[in-house]
Simulated scan of single mutants.
Amino acid sequence: MPATDPQPTLRSLLGRSDLALRLASRSSDLPPDALDAPLRWVHSSDLADPTPFLADDLLLLTTGTQFVPDPRTRRAPTAAAPYVARLRGRGVRALGFGTEVVRDGIPPALVAACRDAGMPLFEVPYRTPFIALARANAEAIAAQAYARRIWALSAQRAIALAALRPDGLAATGAELAKQVGAWVGLYDAAGVLTQSHPSPGP
Rank of each mutant, 00 (worst) to 15 (best):
V180Q: 08
P166R: 03
P82Y: 13
D116Y: 01
D56P: 08
Y146A: 10
A174N: 07
R135M: 12
P202E: 12
L35T: 01
R40D: 13
F67I: 05
P2W: 11
L59S: 07
A24W: 00
A162V: 01
T63D: 09
F53N: 07
A177M: 04
V184M: 06
E123N: 02
L186Q: 00
G191T: 04
V184D: 04
L110Q: 04
G89K: 10
D116H: 08
A163M: 07
L193H: 04
G15I: 06
F130C: 08
G96K: 05
G91A: 09
L47D: 07
A177C: 07
L164P: 00
R88A: 10
P38G: 11
W41N: 12
L133M: 11
L87K: 03
R11P: 01
T62P: 09
T62G: 04
G173Y: 00
V184F: 02
P52H: 11
A80N: 05
M119P: 03
R115M: 01
R103H: 14
A55C: 08
D188W: 15
D56I: 04
S45Q: 04
T194C: 11
R88G: 09
L58M: 13
F122H: 00
R127Y: 11
I131A: 12
T99H: 02
A113H: 01
L186A: 07
